[in-house]
């Protein structure tokens, strides 16, 4: 464990963490539970109607989004990027990585598994790998994750998911060469 003096010198004291350098979060709920719970969230006609209704009703949408932020913030340290990668990352949030890597750990993970930016915290991608491996889901980590859409910050990823906007977020893993390009239709802007 790095000494406090060292953390102070490099500007990484736990109490003085700031939003500018995201801090890795180890989820408080086991991956197995979350893989099971995921089925409850899968899109269906009811959810699709709910999502469409929410997008027409700003106040309800704000409340819904706040509730999502509360739940996912508590469990995953969710930062509301609006395009959730959790089902493909062992339910450890890659946006809590200080480099916000979507495709696996950087080369700076310490021999003891600590983040290079916050040496007192475990690398979130190492956590993701261990959680995925324990559930036989390491293949997920080989999928190529496309660049995110920065206009989605602060929006509900559940609404985006039910509206089918998440579909191109990662490759299908069928071995064919695919493109990183995403066709984006921003719901708040005329297409």
């Amino acid at each position: 464990m790095p000494t406090r003096k060292y953390l102070d010198r490099i500007g990484a004291v736990p109490e003085r963490r700031h939003a500018g350098w995201p801090t890795p979060v180890t989820p408080s709920v086991p991956a197995r539970t979350l893989y099971r719970l995921h089925h409850l969230l899968e899109p269906n006609p009811v959810y699709r109607r709910l999502a469409a209704w929410l997008e027409r009703n700003p106040t309800a949408n704000r409340l819904f989004t706040a509730a999502e932020e509360r739940v996912k913030g508590t469990i995953f340290g969710c930062r509301m990027c609006g395009q959730c990668a959790l089902p493909a990352t062992g339910y450890a949030c890659p946006m809590t990585c200080p480099k916000q890597l979507r495709n696996g750990p950087c080369g700076g993970v310490s021999p003891t598994g600590m983040c290079e930016v916050h040496p007192d915290v475990r690398c979130v991608w190492l956590v993701a790998f261990e959680r995925a491996e324990a559930e036989g889901r390491t293949e997920d980590l080989s999928l190529l994750q496309r660049p995110i859409d920065h206009r989605q910050w602060g929006r509900s990823s559940w609404v985006n998911y039910w509206q089918g906007r998440d579909e191109g977020m990662w490759t299908s893993g069928d071995g064919r060469r695919q493109l990183p390009i995403v066709q984006r239709n921003d719901p708040s802007e005329p297409s």
């Binding site: 500018g20 480099k99 890597l101 495709n103």
Partner: peptide
Amino acid sequence: DHPRFGDHPDAKAVFDIDGVQLVWT
């Protein structure tokens, strides 16, 4: 490398896309 290691640790860390996505691009 993260700006934390450099001579301007107060800089904005961009990381808009990651290294794998840059190769793909």
